[in-house]
């Protein structure tokens, strides 16, 4: 993350650019939902757009594009456990197979 005034001014321009892109992606998300895709397709499209938007917020607003290794390490560990957490419901499928 920068502290030099010239770099901060440059960052301000990227904040505005990301703001406009987030607005555009929000409109695209709502527009895509009007197409009434099949449920798996609709979920995929919506989550891809949400992930893109989330990456922009994390990367630019939260300065993750220029962070220290300690933060990347903590987040990587979090990501691993987050994915495990999201897949825990899949274990219920094993229950159905068993009975």
């Amino acid at each position: 993350m920068h502290s030099d005034p010239a770099e901060i001014k440059k960052s301000v321009r990227s904040y505005i650019t990301v703001f406009v892109m987030l607005m555009v992606f929000t409109v695209i998300t709502v527009a895509a939902s009007r197409f009434h895709f099949a449920v798996p397709m609709a979920i995929t499209v919506a989550l891809i757009i949400a992930t893109l938007k989330g990456s922009m917020v994390a990367g630019v607003f939260m300065h993750l594009l220029h962070e220290k290794r300690a933060i990347y390490g903590a987040l990587l560990l979090t990501l691993v456990f987050f994915i495990v957490l999201l897949f825990i419901p899949l274990l219920t499928i094993l229950d159905r197979v068993r009975y």
Binding site: T29, S33, V39, A42, A46
Partner: peptide, 8 residues
């Protein structure tokens, strides 16, 4: 939350 609850 927005797409998950409002759109899907």
């Amino acid at each position: 939350l927005f797409p998950v609850l409002y759109l899907l």
